[in-house]
Write a protein that binds this DNA or RNA. Structure first.
Lengths: 146, 146
DNA sequence: TATTGTTATACTCTATAACTATA
DNA sequence: TATAGTTATAGAGTATAACAATA
């Protein structure tokens, strides 16, 4: 956890300095940039943000900065399609090299290629396990008297 | 990183619900509880908090809650010794089982024993590597025109 | 009735800079 | 001059609950 904390801290700094982005904002942009097209707010939030209002807040900032656009969703009148703008793509491209460099120099550098592979395999397994857990209500963690 | 994010989120929740603690506060208390005796503020901050004022803030909260005590430091009149109180120890003990259960069920459960070992080895290596890097000034990341 | 998204609000946390005091 | 710690302050981020609109 200490390694992760250090890594996150350095990543945050690089993204902030070179792009004015928090890592949450970067993740949202990156998801939009790499995916096929637009996503709904709910799809976009998945795995990045843990409250609806949190995403609304972040999306508001990104839209105000001209990095994303929100529009109606064809299939569902309640939903909103979020798409990245060219400016958003440009910013991601601008920030990406530095980001990759931070991750490489801090995380990958001390690991052999096989180690990186192993780490990926293990953590993918952990992630899949956690995503498969009950969302957070049938949790078997209640005390008897609460 | 998604796995880590999910884990952190669940850990935060458990600590908050069962102990009213943030994970930073828990780390500070745990460090004091397990170590031999008192630590100075600077020693305590190491690896947990990234600004002096951040630690002063958190220590203020913990002291107000009666979980730690601050006193003068024998060797150095500038420094302050921070010690955990009995109440602090009790709280750590109270929260610990649930914390261990979260980590076990979410992180260790999907991994074999050897995997846990491997993960620890790799991440220790990464941590040591990161701690050995130049503190953050000789960083070769400045732009030519800034 | 459930789901999508927003708003209002309150709160926690963090960081920067200025400051005091000791080494 | 450098280090230990605090304070003031400002800003960013998050979550909860109430809300409106559509499925």
């Amino acid at each position: 956890m200490e390694a992760v904390s250090l890594l996150q801290h350095h990543v945050e700094q690089q993204l902030r300095e070179e792009g004015g982005l928090s890592s949450v904002q970067f993740q949202l942009l990156a998801r939009l940039a790499h995916g096929p097209g637009a996503l709904t707010m709910t799809e976009l939030a998945d795995g990045v943000v843990y409250s609806r209002s949190g995403l609304t807040y972040q999306a508001g900032l990104l839209e105000k900065a001209g990095l994303i656009e929100r529009g109606p969703s064809p299939g569902d009148e309640r939903a909103i399609q979020v798409a990245i703008t060219q400016k958003g793509r440009d910013l991601v491209e601008h920030v990406l090299p530095g980001h990759a460099e931070v991750v490489r120099s801090m995380l990958f550098d001390p690991l052999a290629e096989a180690d990186v592979e192993t780490l990926g395999t293990l953590m993918n397994r952990v992630r899949d396990h956690m995503r498969a857990l009950p969302p957070r209500s049938a949790a078997p963690r209640r005390k008897r008297s609460e």
